[in-house]
């Protein structure tokens, strides 16, 4: 897993590249938690899944954990451009019902910034 992040306006954008498996799930969870803690109220998070290979259930758990914490802080969290494998996985786990999904960064940032 290669995890990088940057800020664009009020939105923290996480780029998640490669496979997210085994110990990666815990690292991802910690990265989300740190970002949420440092962001105060109304946190905005966008997760770019365009180059994400495969994810295990621990990685999915990290996404759901972030979703729950963002909701508690009245913030918003979304995913962007999930790769075909990840799109199917989100559907399988019905997590496509939880996460807003966007096809490009500009529209995602605009929506999350409102």
């Amino acid at each position: 897993m290669e995890l990088t992040f940057r800020k664009r306006g009020p939105v923290i954008i996480f780029n998640l590249k490669g496979n997210v498996i085994g110990p990666d799930g815990l690292k991802l969870r910690e990265a989300f938690q740190k970002a949420i803690e440092l962001s105060g109220d109304r946190v905005r998070i966008l997760i770019n899944l365009e180059s994400t290979g495969m994810m295990d259930s621990s990685a999915l758990g990290a996404l759901v954990n972030a979703y729950t914490h963002v909701q508690q802080k009245k913030g918003r969290i979304a995913v962007m451009k999930p790769s075909p494998n990840i799109h199917k996985l989100l559907q399988l786990a019905k997590l496509d019902q939880l996460f807003e999904s966007y096809s490009d960064e500009d529209s995602a940032v605009t929506a999350l910034s409102s």
Partner: peptide, 9 residues
């Protein structure tokens, strides 16, 4: 259960 952060394996 959809909101639980485990149990999908």
């Amino acid at each position: 259960n959809l909101f639980r952060d485990h149990g999908r394996g």
